[in-house]
């Protein structure tokens, strides 16, 4: 197994461009480590971004939050400006796994892995975040919904790197709920990220399907009347009817659908409170 550890982004992009699918991008490595330990993958070469300092930044520019792809979960969770301006996002990153994993796992990694039970994708989606993908042809910006296509599948091309995530100014209200069905440290059974502000209402349900579930048409129809309990309940029921849940050790599809209705309603109540 070859280990490429470029010192800057330019070199990293060059290597990525040259090797394409023959190298596996290694950010924090927590997800790849699991796959390698279980013998599920044996990549011939790893392209480590560990030395690329310019990808580690977290900054606020013109009201927009910019998270470098190599910023760790712990860094996001603890960053004063994130906590101040995007508390829901800080919370979602802080709920991932353990501190040991959060100290290593990165913003770019969690999006590029597209694991269905991770917390950040749904939270970022609800906040309208966009991922910046850079390749030989330049840069493009994609929404989280465009980025994550399905189980562990993204739209990132073999010669591209996810370099940054940009989060627009935070909405007036945002909430993140994580429902676990077994031990308190279990991966989620159902999560709900919801935001309400100038951009309207966004509700994203995570962990219950192969990718975050977001139905803007339902939200647009309901956005006006979140103050009414009946409207909140209706939207929650509509979400539950629309999602296509999976079943696993954390709950059957039918159970997840029920919990989806409950958790979406509770998230909406929190937004309205």
């Amino acid at each position: 197994m070859r280990w490429h550890a470029p010192a800057d982004l330019e070199e990293a992009l060059l290597l990525r461009g040259v090797h394409g699918e023959d190298v596996t991008v290694h950010a924090g490595g927590t997800f790849l480590g699991i796959l390698m330990n279980q013998g599920l993958i044996a990549p011939p070469a790893l392209l480590s971004l560990g030395r690329v300092a310019e990808l580690r930044g977290i900054e606020v520019a013109r009201g927009e939050l910019r998270l470098g792809a190599m910023a760790t979960h712990l860094a996001v969770e603890r960053h004063p400006e994130v906590r101040e301006g995007w508390p829901m996002l800080a919370r979602a990153f802080g709920l991932v796994a353990s501190r040991r994993v959060r100290a290593v796992a990165t913003v770019g990694g969690v999006l590029a892995d597209a694991d269905y039970a991770s917390d950040p994708p749904a939270a970022l989606s609800a906040l309208g975040a966009r991922a910046i993908l850079r390749g030989p042809g330049g840069e493009r910006s994609v929404s989280i919904e465009e980025l994550i296509l399905g189980y562990y599948t993204t739209c990132i091309r073999p010669d591209e790197l996810l370099v940054e995530v940009r989060v627009p100014p935070a909405p007036e209200r945002a909430v993140y709920r994580k429902f676990v069905s077994r031990s308190s440290e279990d991966r989620p059974c159902v999560t709900v990220a919801a935001a309400h502000g100038a951009a309207g209402l966004a509700v994203v349900v995570g962990a219950l399907a192969e990718r975050p579930q977001r139905f803007d048409d339902l939200c647009a129809a309901a956005a006006g009347d979140l103050a009414a309990a009946g409207a909140r309940e209706q939207l929650a029921q509509d979400y539950a009817a629309r999602v296509e849940p999976i079943g696993d050790a954390r709950g059957s599809a039918a159970y997840r659908r029920r919990v989806c209705a409950v958790e979406v309603r509770r998230a909406l109540e929190a937004l309205a409170a």
């Binding site: 279980q38 077994r182 031990s183 991966r187 050790a249």
Partner: peptide, 24 residues
């Protein structure tokens, strides 16, 4: 509350400590 080794046609489907939870 939650411990169970799950099977599908005799195959264990949760043979790891993420899918098989123990108390914390």
């Amino acid at each position: 509350l939650f411990e169970s080794v799950d099977f599908n046609e005799g195959q264990v489907t949760n043979a790891n400590l993420s899918d098989y939870n123990v108390p914390t």
